[in-house]
Computed example of a mutant assay.
Amino acid sequence: MAVASSPFERVTVTMPAELVAGVDRYERNRSRFITEAVRHELKRRRHLELLRSLDEPHPDSLATAALGLEAWAEALPTEDSDLLDPTAGLPLRWSANLGWQEPVS
């Protein structure tokens, strides 16, 4: 997965010899292998960060949720008012014990 026209930087990485041998068993181009491994790890960490943020939302997110999406959208400057349709999507509420939940009808 190459990134089009992204700048490259040379880095020096020191690794145990057995890891280098393991890389060489699967890939002749060490840089490509390590680049793919780092991309995979960064994606995994971003995913974990997202899950953590869902479990423990930022206080500003809680304030927005308490205010209500429709009221928040109405408070946007008029030039941004078409960015959000508060009637679209699924209504949710935050529960400190359970996380985001559908409201009980």
Rank of each mutant, 00 (worst) to 15 (best):
A37D: 07
L98D: 14
S95A: 02
R32F: 09
E18W: 04
A65P: 09
L54S: 01
P77E: 12
P77G: 03
D55G: 06
R30M: 08
P86A: 06
G68L: 02
P16G: 08
P77A: 10
R39K: 14
Q101P: 04
L50D: 10
L62A: 09
A21S: 14
V20W: 00
H58L: 09
T78S: 13
H40C: 08
R28C: 01
R25D: 03
S53C: 01
V23Q: 04
E18F: 06
L62V: 12
G68N: 07
P103S: 05
L51F: 08
E70H: 13
A71I: 04
T35F: 02
E27G: 03
N29E: 03
T87N: 13
V20G: 08
L98M: 00
E49S: 00
W100D: 01
W100K: 05
P103R: 01
G99P: 06
S5M: 11
A37N: 04
L48Y: 06
W72I: 04
L76A: 11
T64Y: 13
A88C: 04
E74P: 08
S5H: 13
E41Q: 13
K43F: 07
N29W: 01
R32Y: 08
M1T: 04
V20C: 10
H47G: 03
R39Y: 05
L19Y: 14
R52L: 08
D24A: 09
R10N: 11
R25S: 07
A65Y: 12
F8S: 13
S31F: 02
A73R: 10
A63S: 11
G99A: 06
E49T: 00
R25E: 10
S53I: 00
A4I: 06
P16Q: 10
L51T: 00
P57N: 05
M15I: 12
L90H: 14
A71V: 01
R39M: 10
I34S: 02
T14L: 13
D55K: 12
I34T: 02
S31V: 09
R10D: 07
L19E: 05
D80G: 11
S105I: 09
E9I: 11
R45L: 15
S53M: 04
T14Q: 14
H58F: 12
L84N: 11
P86Q: 04
S95K: 01
N29V: 00
A17S: 15
A2R: 04
R28A: 07
Y26T: 00
L67C: 07
N29C: 01
V20L: 15
S105C: 05
A21T: 09
D85H: 09
S105V: 09
E79K: 15
A96C: 09
L42T: 05
L76T: 08
R30W: 10
E79Q: 15
E27S: 15
P59L: 06
I34G: 02
